[in-house]
């Protein structure tokens, strides 16, 4: 092929890179999150103090990033499963990536709105 390979540097590769990065990032967060939740077994006040940090503007923004990462990984994961098990999956893998990105965007816009609403209102003094 004149343009090089069918995989390297094209959507197929980048969707895989993103799947890998989001998988690792979500996993690392999960390890921390199980441990912070375990504080409910230690001391209710300590738990509330730690959870309060989740409500600060910067961590709130990171939560939007976490949801964005999980949502991409989940939608692209379904795409991978369809490529593997659906007879027409390999033929539509490229179209399905666009569908994944469209669904991701449509869900992220209202999601980010509701996640950030309180933080923004507080910053604006509403």
């Amino acid at each position: 092929m004149a343009s090089g390979t069918l995989y390297r540097g094209r959507e197929g590769m980048w969707s895989w890179v993103a799947h890998r990065i989001t998988g690792v990032a979500v996993y690392l967060f999960l390890l921390v999150h199980v441990l912070d939740t375990a504080l409910v077994r230690v001391d209710p006040n300590l738990y509330d103090t730690v959870i309060a940090s989740y409500k600060t503007p910067i961590v709130n923004l990171l939560e939007v990033g976490l949801v964005a990462a999980v949502l991409y990984h989940a939608l692209n994961g379904i795409r991978i499963i369809l490529v593997d098990f659906w007879s027409k999956g390999p033929r539509y893998q490229r179209a399905m990536l666009w569908v994944v990105m469209a669904i991701w965007l449509v869900l992220m816009v209202p999601g980010a709105f509701f996640m950030l609403r309180h933080t923004v209102e507080k910053m604006l003094g509403a």
Binding site: Y47, D48, I51, N60, V67, A74, H118
Partner: peptide, 26 residues
Amino acid sequence: VVLVFLVLGHLLIMNILDGGVQRINF
């Protein structure tokens, strides 16, 4: 496939619906 429901449901309830993370405490 199972995690799609469990994890996205978890994030929807904990971070988005009904005030999200702001209402979480002991």
